[in-house]
Design a binder for these strands. Structure first.
Lengths: 205, 205
DNA sequence: ATTATAAGCTAATTCGAATTAGCCGTCAAT
DNA sequence: ATTGACGGCTAATTCGAATTAGCTTATAAT
């Protein structure tokens, strides 16, 4: 990773911990191991660093939405996903989703940064909502549609079923973001949630 | 409301919209209708204004936790609450909880401020988690315990049942905070959620 | 070999936001 | 009537963080 990239990396870390306004260019430089004025050889100013982070993250989201099949893109359902869903344990799906969101380093720092900065910039809150509400519900809603079609689960209201599946995951995620020491507790609750969800919606009946 | 109180009120509004660091004492003064130096007749400095807001909110939370029976205090269950639960429609309970959180002016601004500032101050994130995770789950868990005892709903896992009830409420709340124009949509989903919850956990069977 | 560019540094400079100094009018209590 | 505290104002002052100026070295291309 070259200096230009490392600046973004360290800046993202700092922004996610303290918020844009509370991070000084000096902090970023120090984290990178250079002096503050040297930053300006790579970026026009502090705001440009922030903007560059956003661009990288947009690009990254686009990639992962496709490859990990959990974060968005409800446009097309290829046969592979469809087939795997038939045999995939819901618990695994939920846990994977949760752990990806929780541990993927970029995702995690970016989410925290969005959480802090979203109220200052409408565009950021839109990104946040899309990433953590609309896209997951849309994508998972489609999956549950297939699962219900297959008769594996039963419901007359797929959007609500999806909300029932996803909202606890989201909620537990916000807990872990705030207090990583509760991760174990949350994972346990997550697993119980999905098992009960499964039971309630009739896979086992 | 005197000047001293109005300062807190306007400052809370501004902090909740832009975050502490992005609000200038000048902004606060302007909102109040005085000049910035006059603020210092009432508060030692900017931080003192922030701290005073926290104190007011702590006090307020303590009050409302008791009087509205939705926001915390799981210590004692008085007979009144117990009795009312027997006949209260869950949908009303959930809607009231949601609408209180969403529309109570102080609660709303304070929640947004906490959301923005929590990562800079461990104490704030603790307050946030307590207010929006632990206390609601604890209190509602107790209520569901009573409801299950009465045989109105059935489950072998009250914490998960409580999570199933509360997580969608919390999730939809975070949506409305970010985009108030989605309130109607969220309320509709909220209602469907609770009806389905009720159905899944067996009130109607 | 020369030159240009990239990327670093130290030492200013700028600039804006927080705070302080010091003055003034009002009003309630002596 | 006088005084003092309260709460406001304008005009500094301070101070710290962002940015710019200008120098240096290394390296890659001519």
């Amino acid at each position: 990773m070259n200096t230009k990239e490392r600046i973004l990396d360290e800046a993202l870390t700092l922004f996610s911990e303290k918020g844009y306004a509370n991070v000084y260019v000096n902090d970023i430089a120090e984290a990178v191991g250079i002096k503050a004025p040297s930053l300006y050889k790579h970026y026009k100013n502090k705001q440009a660093i922030f903007d560059a982070i956003l661009e990288v993250m947009y690009a990254r989201f686009k990639e992962t939405a496709g490859s990990l099949n959990i974060a968005g893109d409800n446009a097309d359902v290829d046969a592979g996903i469809y087939k795997s869903m038939e045999e995939t344990d819901l618990v695994q799906l939920g846990k994977n989703l949760f752990l990806y969101y929780l541990h993927d380093d970029y995702t995690k720092r970016f989410r925290k940064m969005l959480t802090i900065e979203q109220f200052r910039d409408k565009a950021l809150s839109t990104v946040y909502m899309d990433q953590y509400f609309d896209a997951p519900l849309s994508y998972q809603g489609m999956l549950f549609g297939l699962i219900v079609q297959q008769g594996l689960l039963k419901t007359d209201n797929i959007p609500v079923m999806t909300l029932h599946f996803y909202a606890p995951i989201y909620t537990l995620l916000t807990v872990c973001d705030r207090d990583p020491s509760r991760e174990e507790e949350c994972l346990k609750l997550l697993e119980e949630h999905i098992r009960k969800f499964d039971e309630l919606y009739g896979r086992n009946t």
